[in-house]
């Protein structure tokens, strides 16, 4: 005998209820992440460092911070010197090719000098034109940030710093990874 349809009330006639998302646990999670990220939020002036460069930077315990945005950022890797991410000089394992050096002054890296000088002149033009940065009239401060490979020999560092000095970049900051940070 075939089973007769159930006669119990409710069975077979179950109401289709609207499915609801339980967002409470997700909200808990988001709140924790949000608080954590807000805590680490800082408005300090920072230099952008990509991951490959970060592995090469030296380590330091210094707590100093950059006072204002750098006017030039020089990145030194074993193969190249970059100014504001623009390739300027090709290096051969930290060696500057002779053609890039000034024949009368072995400390001056000519392409780097030209690039920095351009940046300085652009900054001076901005200053003359009365540009306003962060609500204050812009003034050229000569702030240069060096992002150097930790294995860079001091001879190359001195050449870069000397060249920066010739281009009137007087405040030189070195970038390092904060120890334990």
């Amino acid at each position: 005998m075939a089973k007769s349809p159930s006669k119990r009330p409710g069975v077979g006639r179950r109401k289709q209820e609207e499915a609801k998302l339980t967002l409470t646990s997700m909200m808990d999670m988001f709140t924790i992440i949000l608080v954590f990220l807000m805590k680490s939020y800082s408005t300090d002036v920072e230099v952008n460092v990509d991951a490959s460069m970060a592995q090469r930077l030296p380590v330091s315990i210094s707590e100093a911070k950059l006072e204002q945005d750098a006017e030039a950022v020089v990145q030194i890797t074993p193969d190249a010197i970059l100014v504001k991410n623009k390739h300027v000089v090709t290096l051969n394992n930290f060696k500057v090719p002779k053609t890039a050096l000034d024949p009368t002054n072995p400390f001056l890296i000519v392409p780097l000098y030209d690039e920095l000088n351009n940046l300085k002149e652009m900054a001076l033009k901005l200053e003359e034109a009365g540009a306003i940065v962060n609500g204050k009239p812009y003034r050229f401060q000569g702030i240069l940030v060096i992002k150097g490979d930790k294995n860079m020999p001091s001879s190359l560092l001195m050449k870069v710093m000397y060249t920066a000095g010739q281009a009137e970049f007087a405040k030189i900051y070195h970038t390092a990874i904060k120890e334990g940070g």
Binding site: L37, M161, A164, Y173
Partner: peptide, 26 residues
């Protein structure tokens, strides 16, 4: 937005003046 701003590494800055042979404000 906050994740983009998050610094996974903290950078330290060390300021120096120019080498003695340089000419400048320092």
């Amino acid at each position: 937005m906050l994740l983009l701003n998050y610094h996974f590494i903290t950078l330290a800055m060390l300021n120096t003046s120019l080498p003695a042979s340089g000419e400048g404000a320092a």
